[in-house]
Amino acid sequence: MSSPYRIAVFASGQGSNFQTMADASLSGSLGAEVVLLVCDKSQAPVVERARKAGVESYVFDPKAYARREDYEAEIAAELEKRNVDLVVLAGYMRLLTSVLVERYAGRMINVHPSLLPAFPGKNAIGQAWDYGVKLTGITVHFVDGGMDSGPVIAQQAVEITSEDTLDSLESKIHQAEQQLYPQVVSMFAKGLVRLEGRQVSIHNK
């Protein structure tokens, strides 16, 4: 019997997407095991979520290091110690350096709350709302070291109606994330995702 597919989740805040992954892992629907939470804020609610879910946490203080590369080297060691197959960014609020990006090229993904390449960077939901678009959504993409610039794996559209408020739009976006992101992780666990250049395809075995 092959060992379970192992993922690490990076998060900095509330951890709703972490919780979705952990719940799907426990139920068996994810097809993968959440083996580690990486967090840069010791008081973040996601740390308590990990404790309750029985997931190990690696919590660090970025200010204790001279360079980002220094703490990322320690993170890389923690990932390798646990034989992590896929790094899943879920509200991790730090740009990554080549220390992690290159080591996990093709094995590190992120979810962004817009239909990339529209509205990259911070406050994407607010950007879309202020611009007045009628359709936004979410994008799951590979991480390549740029600002939300990696190859797109999957997208899900979210309509903005005349009844929406910024709060209701944020709620719809988060619901879409919690639906699509675990599905993509499950595809990776099944070995269905192929990357060639910037083109990503899903292959049924």
Rank of each mutant, 00 (worst) to 15 (best):
S171M: 14
S171L: 14
W129L: 07
A32L: 09
V87G: 05
Y181S: 07
V87F: 02
M147R: 00
S114G: 07
G126T: 09
D40G: 06
I109G: 03
Y104T: 09
A8M: 05
E163A: 12
G31C: 02
L135E: 12
F142D: 03
P117I: 13
S186M: 04
F60R: 07
R107T: 00
V193G: 03
D144G: 08
D85Q: 04
G106S: 11
Q178A: 13
L100F: 05
L37C: 08
P120N: 02
P120R: 11
P4L: 01
L115R: 04
V152C: 05
D144A: 06
S149Y: 03
S25G: 15
E78F: 03
G126N: 12
D167L: 10
L86A: 04
T161N: 03
P62W: 09
G31M: 03
G132K: 14
P120D: 02
D40E: 04
G132M: 14
D23F: 04
Y131K: 15
L37N: 08
I125V: 15
Q183K: 15
L96W: 00
I173W: 03
R94G: 02
Y58Q: 10
S3I: 06
F142H: 13
A50I: 06
V47W: 06
L195V: 09
A53V: 08
E56D: 11
D167A: 12
T136M: 09
I160F: 08
V55D: 11
E170V: 10
D70Q: 13
R51Y: 05
L115K: 05
Y71H: 15
R103A: 14
S57F: 01
Q199P: 00
E102P: 02
V9I: 15
V84G: 05
M1G: 13
K122L: 15
G146A: 08
E33R: 12
E33P: 00
L180R: 02
A90E: 04
L100Q: 09
E72H: 06
L135S: 02
A64Q: 13
A157E: 15
L26F: 10
R82L: 09
P45F: 06
Q183L: 14
L36P: 12
V84D: 10
M93R: 06
T97W: 04
E78K: 15
T136S: 12
V99I: 15
N204L: 10
G28V: 12
P117R: 09
A154L: 14
A105G: 01
P117D: 12
K190V: 00
D130I: 02
A76Q: 13
K205Q: 13
D85L: 08
L166G: 04
L135H: 07
K134F: 04
L89Q: 05
H174D: 10
G145Q: 05
L96T: 00
E78A: 14
K63M: 09
S171H: 15
A90C: 06
N123T: 03
E196S: 13
L26M: 14
